[in-house]
């Protein structure tokens, strides 16, 4: 299958005078339908990278292709924006209108669609994120979590092939975080929309199928999330948050007990510990 997003020797610097490369010779392919998370410390280039995926930022060197279209070619801008939606950290700054349904309608209105089609898309988008009963509400009175759901609805109404999110939950409490991630998972699995998520959170990264770790503008690791988070050296090297399940595993290791964790979720840890406790043959 062809890559939906493809970068070839992508490098980026903010201005020609800048010696520092924010992105350094990145060649990467993301297929349609993948759920990718991008990790790395602040300054590693994660945000910059994803902003080249919807032609918000153009490569200083190299190329970025979205569904075969070269992002550097202006005539593709409109189509690229239609196919790739972008959601940033602060939901407040993305909301255009004072009323929820009018805000979601903004995107389809820009596409020049007929009123009936716009109404249909707005209702559908609000339904998917669970805000259907809020359609007449005033946007600035929504909670943080609701605002981010609204931001997702705004993008969904464009019927994109791919959604990029740059630390969408960093300002939200943990319950809202999980809600948002579940919506993203649903969008990915049910509607086959590619999801690219930039995050610091281990818990969120575990929702993805693929984890890319960036360091100093380069891709350092590209594998499954569980492989990233069960590698303690890797986590320390890139200063990533160590999940508690792994910390527990380390404690067991220190006592000479080897506990196998293939799944870092709570249930996965419970299963492994259950096995350990029930295994009559295990000797200290």
């Amino acid at each position: 299958m062809e890559n939906f997003i493809e970068t070839k020797n992508l490098s980026f610097r903010y201005s020609d005078q800048d010696k520092d490369l924010i992105l350094d010779n990145i060649s990467l392919g993301i297929k349609q339908g993948e759920f990718v998370c991008i990790l790395g410390r602040n300054g590693s280039g994660k945000s910059t990278l994803v902003k080249t995926f919807n032609s918000l930022l153009l490569p200083s060197e190299g190329k970025v292709y979205v569904n075969g279209m070269d992002t550097a070619d202006e005539k593709h801008n409109f189509e690229i924006h239609k196919q790739v939606g972008l959601i940033l950290q602060n939901p407040d700054n993305q909301i255009v209108s004072s009323i929820v349904e009018e805000d979601v309608a903004f995107g389809p209105e820009n596409l020049g669609l007929a009123p009936a089609e716009i109404k249909y898309r707005v209702e559908r988008a609000l339904n998917i994120v669970g805000l259907e009963s809020f359609s007449q509400n005033i946007t600035h009175k929504l909670s943080g979590g609701q605002k981010q759901k609204l931001a997702i609805a705004e993008v969904l109404a464009m019927e994109p092939q791919c959604i990029i999110l740059d630390e969408p939950t960093s300002m939200l409490d943990s319950f809202s975080q999980v809600e948002i991630l579940k919506i993203l998972k649903k969008i990915n699995k049910k509607y086959k929309i590619t999801v690219i998520l930039v995050t610091h959170s281990t818990r969120e990264a575990m929702f993805a199928d693929r984890a890319i770790v960036m360091e100093k503008g380069r891709i350092a690791v590209d594998t499954k999330p569980v492989d990233v988070f069960s590698d303690i050296d890797l986590l320390n090297k890139f200063n990533l948050h160590i999940p508690q399940g792994i910390k527990l595993l380390l404690e067991f290791n220190k006592k000479g007990v080897s506990l196998h964790l293939s799944d870092l979720s709570v249930d996965g840890c419970v299963a492994s510990i259950e096995k350990f406790l029930e295994d009559k043959n295990a000797v200290n």
Binding site: N54, L56, F78, H81, K82, G85, L86, L88, N90, D92, N93, Q94, V96, E101, E102, A105, F106, G107, P108, E109, N110, L111, G112, L113, A114, P115, I118, K119, V122, E154, V155, M158
Partner: peptide
């Protein structure tokens, strides 16, 4: 300024264009 910048990015990402003709949901 930060808000204006973010908003401009969001609007552009949702295909807002000064030149194109927009339609309306409510007529």
């Amino acid at each position: 300024f930060k808000k204006a910048n973010d908003l401009a990015v969001a609007m552009e990402s949702r295909c807002y264009s000064c030149e194109r003709n927009r339609t309306k949901m409510k007529i």
